[in-house]
């Protein structure tokens, strides 16, 4: 029988510290309430109205949701391409960043320089990144020239439905320098004693990676996966550039560019259908929430904490 814990009576100094802490937390809570929770509630509220700017809103119940799920030309495609791009870019980004982090974790000359080189794409503005890659992917661009050199056919990578999402995922992979840096930090924390013990026991490099490094890295991988999923599902810039901003100058926007954030922006901000755009954003929020929850639930079966599950 365990002894019952004695009740802790905080001292004066401790109480004052707690009061200060609460006081200092007020701005953060205000931010959370006014910049996150209230807008979220507002978005849901507005999604229940038919509202086309500059007109006035009229209550419509769940009609915006009904329209999106049953009649809208873009909605299902938008969900499909967002998920496809999200999964592809996250999976490829995780593998790529792990490989590069492992390579950079070796004692190679110029390691710091390589680390900077691989990190740099992450800090380049998204518009510049996409425009540069669009030149590489162009019909007369370097990628097509290489393809032709090896006997292939020129492809409009950013215009053909079959290639758009893989091509954009490739850009996401290229910009995943942040994942590399985080993974390198994670690799530095894998206990040397485990690796040395395994080496003495005759484990080869692959076995050491698979049985020790990878399990020890799972909390980092989990974090990377979560952040990448949320970030990549919000992809926006390529669609905006492809549509030339929408409105009068709108160009061809193939299905593969109809990402949910873009559809939401165009519907609400360009076309002024505020109620419907709010419904799209709320569904997007739910969707991201569902995938985050799935990730958390499934992580219990593969996440390894060296110091035990923190619960």
């Amino acid at each position: 029988m365990q002894p019952s814990p004695t009740k802790h009576h905080p001292g004066k100094a401790e109480k004052q510290e707690a009061r200060t802490a609460k006081l200092l937390l007020i701005p953060a809570f205000m931010g959370l309430i006014f910049l996150t929770y209230l807008p979220l509630i507002a978005v849901f509220g507005i999604s229940l109205f038919q509202w086309r700017v500059p007109g006035t809103p009229s209550f419509a119940g769940f009609d915006n949701y009904r329209f999106l799920f049953t009649e809208d030309f873009f909605f299902w495609t938008s969900i499909r391409v967002t998920l496809l791009y999200g999964f592809l870019s996250v999976a490829a980004g995780l593998v790529y960043s792990m490989i590069i982090a492992l390579l950079l974790n070796r004692p190679i000359p110029g390691r710091a320089a390589f680390r900077t080189i691989f990190y740099m794409p992450f800090i380049i503005p998204a518009v510049a990144t996409f425009l540069s890659w669009s030149l590489l992917y162009d019909g007369g661009g370097i990628i097509n020239n290489i393809v032709v050199m090896f006997g292939g056919q020129r492809t409009h990578f950013l215009s053909n439905e079959q290639t758009i999402i893989p091509a954009l995922a490739m850009v996401a992979v290229w910009t995943s320098g942040n994942l590399i840096v985080i993974k390198m930090a994670g690799l530095g924390n894998v206990p040397r004693t485990y690796l040395e013990a395994a080496e003495i026991d005759g484990a080869n490099a692959w076995q050491r990676f698979w049985k020790i490094t990878l399990p020890c890295m799972t909390p980092i991988i989990f974090y990377n996966m979560l952040m990448s999923l949320v970030t990549n599902m919000q992809i926006f810039v390529p669609s905006l550039l492809m549509a030339a901003g929408g409105g009068a100058g709108a160009g061809t926007v193939p299905e593969s560019y109809l990402f949910m954030t873009f559809t939401m922006y165009r519907t609400g901000f360009i076309n002024g259908l505020i109620g419907r755009a709010s419904a799209i954003s709320f569904i997007f929020f739910i969707l991201v929430g569902i995938f985050t929850a799935i990730l958390f639930i499934t992580s219990k079966s593969w996440l390894f904490y060296e110091g035990g599950d923190p619960k």
Binding site: F73, S159, E161, G246, A248, T252, V253, P254, I270, N271
Partner: peptide
């Protein structure tokens, strides 16, 4: 603008 948005996506596979 709504019409042209639909058209721009519908025609992509034609091009």
């Amino acid at each position: 603008e709504l019409f042209n948005d639909v058209l721009s996506t519908a025609l992509a596979p034609v091009w």
